[in-house]
Design a protein around this nucleic acid. Structure first.
Lengths: 261, 261
DNA sequence: ATAGTCGACTTGTGAAGACAAGTGAGGCGA
DNA sequence: TCGCCTCACTTGTCTTCACAAGTCGACTAT
């Protein structure tokens, strides 16, 4: 885990001052040290406490304001506001991390992993010539042992071949790809609804034609090269997506376990 | 249109320097004056051009970097990158504005507008005592004259009574509420899939049981008071939602006309 | 008692300067 | 020719100063 080591080291010392301040302020809000609704210490007090000038303090506060954890205006000290933590990239991309994040136990049953030639549709989305070899992975994903989602992924061959050295039943494919330094950087999720096809229905143990929440995902590298094209079909009773939106332009997205009404 | 007048005035003169700079830089990127992929002028050049110090220039550039329009790092000048404009709050809340934004003609047929007592579910979501009077609005929304979505909104009475002075067939309820200074500030959209009920099916001209993309929306004021609880059911063939996501944490959401595959 | 005013304090904005850290090109030597 | 090094230039970070603009409480005059 190269990245997490680096992060730990950086947290300790090497990070620039304003980043350390931002982290510290965020910790204070989350821990309740700065209670919600209460005004936080003034900038000059924070400057005194940390022995810095106003610059880094304001830069750190700006980050929190951008996340909506701090609201306030000119003349009056900003007040803390606990807010839904914006789900990081990883949580939104990895079923395993998502499930753990909401306190459920993820599971999977691999239906198929195969190297074959790209279908015209997949080739188009991945920007490959038709017939190029790709790796297809079909898994049934479970939440606390109950079927929740059917995942059909198509990887470009360079990425997909990693899967043959890896048992997709044991853990997170996403983690494994990161460990192999695959440059997963950007993802576009398109959400719609489809009727369960007979094969979907059989695996998810529902009746054919039942509505499913479909998320098609195109994951690309930092240079914009498509790496994965996926089609995830969720049982609506198991997961929903939410978008939160304010006039100030702040947006936070999330994927949640469907609540029982 | 009070706000747009204010914006226009402010753009001219009164806005702080860094905001004017940010707007100018964004214009240059969108207009192609700063071509995509090309490095933009250095900070010192911009300082010289606008006769300002580095502070405001950097502040303005930080905004663009936050939106992903500018990427780059230490030592090398940042390069411009055209990016999907993050859809503003209004576009995401108003069917009318959304439709116009994607070049379609919005339409609506009001099925019902009624003042009645809140159902237990609606009361719970709106934070009202059960049986409190609310205003319910049911409209069939059209895209270029074709049914696209069925909208069921429940407004708290204070907001909903405005609708009785307004013909919801003529235009945007959202615009009308803003004109009446209703403090629509925050919205939470929860997305899932449901099967069309007989009544849905009849209005949307599909068969019962067909999958629909459902978006439940809770709109609140800036102080967190719920104002509207809505249940929008889209034909998946007409609209999808997308979420774009990067490791840097940038997120942009959108609602789009479903493309024909 | 109440309304208005003043002043202390807060954040927003901007200038100017300094140094650190990274990039890239050109020049130099092997 | 190739590789290395130096140097100019860029952005990142931080300090210090100054003033504007808004808030809020205390004080004062009515």
């Amino acid at each position: 885990m190269k990245t997490s080591e680096a992060t730990r080291d950086a947290t300790r010392e090497a990070l620039p001052l304003h980043q350390r301040l931002a982290a510290e302020f965020q910790r204070r809000i989350e821990s309740g040290e700065w209670p919600e609704g209460e005004p936080v210490p003034s900038e000059s007090q924070l400057c005194a406490e940390f022995g810095s000038s106003r610059g880094p303090v304001r830069q750190a506060l700006a980050v929190l304001r951008g996340e909506g954890s701090l609201v306030g205006g000119r003349g009056k000290p900003p007040v803390a506001r606990r807010t839904a933590p914006s789900q990081p990239f990883a949580t939104f991309l990895s079923f395993t991390q998502w499930a753990r994040g909401i306190g459920r136990e993820p599971g999977q049953r691999t239906i198929e992993v195969a190297r074959r030639r790209a279908t015209p549709e997949a080739a188009a989305r991945l920007g490959l010539p038709e017939g190029e070899p790709v790796v297809e992975l079909v898994r049934l994903r479970l939440l606390d042992g109950v079927p929740a989602m059917l995942e059909r992924s198509t990887f470009v061959h360079e990425v997909g071949r990693i899967l043959f050295d890896f048992d997709p039943d044991t853990g997170s494919v996403y983690d494994e790809l990161l460990r192999r330094d695959v440059d997963l950087h950007h993802a576009r999720h398109t959400i719609d609804a489809v009727a369960a096809e007979p094969r979907d229905a059989e695996l998810l143990r529902i009746t054919a034609g039942a509505p499913l929440l479909r998320v098609r995902r195109l994951t690309t590298s930092s240079r914009g090269v498509p790496l994965e094209d996926a089609d995830d079909r969720y049982l609506p009773s198991m997961a929903t997506f939410t978008i939160e939106n304010t006039v100030e332009g702040r947006t936070v997205i999330g994927r949640y376990r469907t609540e029982e009404d």
